[in-house]
Design a protein around this nucleic acid. Sequence first.
DNA 1: ACCTGAACACCGTTCAAGT
DNA 2: ACCTGAACACCGTTCAAGT
Lengths: 197, 197
Amino acid sequence: MALRLADHIGIENVSMRKLAAELGVTAMALYRYYGSVDEIQVAALALAFTEVDTHPIPGERWDDTIRRTTSSIREMYLNHSTAHLHTVESTGADPGMEEHIQRVYKLHEDQGIPAPILRKAWRIIDAYMGGFILGETDEVQHRSKLPHEETAETWRETAAGAYSEETFHDGIEIIIAGIRAMAEPDPCDWHTPEDPR
Amino acid sequence: MALRLADHIGIENVSMRKLAAELGVTAMALYRYYGSVDEIQVAALALAFTEVDTHPIPGERWDDTIRRTTSSIREMYLNHSTAHLHTVESTGADPGMEEHIQRVYKLHEDQGIPAPILRKAWRIIDAYMGGFILGETDEVQHRSKLPHEETAETWRETAAGAYSEETFHDGIEIIIAGIRAMAEPDPCDWHTPEDPR
DNA sequence: ACCTGAACACCGTTCAAGT
DNA sequence: ACCTGAACACCGTTCAAGT
């Protein structure tokens, strides 16, 4: 499959010809199933997203759901860091990605988060995740070939060590705090309903 | 120059051969000045970043500095939205980008923000900016060719309208609020010093 | 010093042709 | 229905050769 090949050589190097060769077939045969090489890329990305933990946990609080799902997404990208999935330009309009977005959205909707809060929270988390993953996978990529000076200035240190699990959670906590501040005076005790049956 | 050509055809379509033709020269001549096509891309990105407003304003408060510089970066990317600069993979290690990072970092350092606060704030803002710009420029790109259904479900609406000036500022405000919460009980009255001369 | 031409090893995609 | 071969119009990059 395209994702396995991407793990080996990077998604940007998955060409019609190489993928076809891997499948023991000619490149042109792939056009029966995918319209272009970009379509194969977003299909591989959507497949990777099926590995993300988005199942509902009865009684789970909304902020714990955010911590769990965002961590799972980050881990998925790290697991496939050699595949450079962050370089895939997904419009979000393709069916595989839509399914994932819808699943997470429903999770929070069912928790009873008011729609305007959810909208704003969604947007900032989406942007933060995208940026963090972009930066972190790039850094994982280039870390080894950096000069790694001991006498680095503070600003350089900050820019270079910008990505780690701790940093990721710091950001998520800041955002959760910001959402609480935004929702005031709502006590924010939204949570996944207990299993009704 | 490469940036002008990128504005016309998109940076990902700026090839050695096309750029050389534009300059009335052969593609191979460019290798005297740039080692590869990727080098030309980050040079174009660095050039675009010189358009960003990062000058110090005596007396300006730290949060206003954040609002000003982040807005300016976003506007720069929007001004060059046809160039798809967000697709450029910059390691941050190239001289042009380093200069920009250093300038903004010093701005906040001179305001007296404590180093640990600045580090955390920098990281989350960097990630948020990266993700927002990635999402917004992609959306600007694909907006016209989306189905644009009137009967869209809420989740789809949220994902689609995720990027606008208002949304951008909402996110920045949430982050600023989060930084204040993180710094407590510090009153956070950091600001650019008055001109000493 | 600076530029060129030809070449190499690739791409994505189309399309008529095969079974 | 599904796959192939050949072709087209591109790439980035190398390198010996020109002035």
